[in-house]
Design a protein around this nucleic acid. Structure first.
Lengths: 127, 127
DNA sequence: ACCAGACATCGACAGGCGTCAATATCTCGT
DNA sequence: ACGAGATATTGACGCCTGTCGATGTCTGGT
């Protein structure tokens, strides 16, 4: 019950798996297959939301590179259930890491995840 | 009537304007403001859709770096109005360029647009 | 054992969006 | 001027999703 949230257009990553993003080709090189496009779109949909973008930047900029829900609720101006929901979406997409310590749940960026998305979107060939 | 499609969460770029994407900070550096997040999310929402991702890759990989609607309808397996709708979304987001030549409408990638998105998402500092 | 507090889940609601058929518009030949 | 063909627009339908309040679950202290 911790793996998938939706089945239609999302790409629920395995909890412990690497941020696969979906494919590896730089997007502008070869026409994407339907499956590749669906996988990549699933991760992008997780990012393409104002509240979640702010959550990512808040977590990244927070002290120690991690933050708990109580740190994020107020600056976002959203209710605690809504923030938890967005965080879950980001974790399921493989973008955030969740670690429970005591009563608090600390969220941090999965190291290469965002850069992997950036790499796929980049059109210029990189080393 | 040719500028904006929706007003709620989208970021309808000006037709001839540069692909502003929204902001300039690398996302993981400083917490995004609501306005910055909304602007960036608007462009990302345009990309975070399987059909539109395939359209982008099809256009980019097509001969001459451009393609008309008739080239894209069949490989996508979607109706012509749906393809036109997606293309319009990508043009409004500043990702595709549209040029009408005779009866055909040729779509091509806006040079730096995708890379601009990739730059904002990248966490590692680049030169 | 009980309570307080942090977080997750549930149920419901409204708005957004992808899709299509039908139709309109526009351009080029004839 | 007319018709054919390419593309855009409209209207409708159903699914997806962001949001909240209410509630459940778990942990740590007293």
């Amino acid at each position: 019950m911790t793996t998938a949230i939706e089945t239609t257009s999302g790409a629920p990553e395995q909890p412990g798996a690497l941020p696969t993003v979906a494919c590896c080709a730089p997007l502008a090189r070869t026409p994407l297959s339907l499956a590749e496009a669906q996988g990549l779109a699933g991760v992008l949909k997780a990012v393409a939301e104002p509240a979640r973008l702010r959550l990512i930047s808040l977590v990244a900029a927070h002290e120690g590179g991690e933050a708990c829900v109580c740190d994020l609720t107020e600056p976002l101006g959203l209710s605690q259930p809504t923030v938890s929901h967005h965080l879950r979406t980001l974790v399921d997409a493989g973008l955030l890491h969740r670690e429970k310590r005591g009563v608090w749940a600390y969220y941090s960026l999965v190291p290469g995840a965002l850069d992997e998305i950036a790499r796929v979107l980049t059109t210029t060939t990189q080393s």
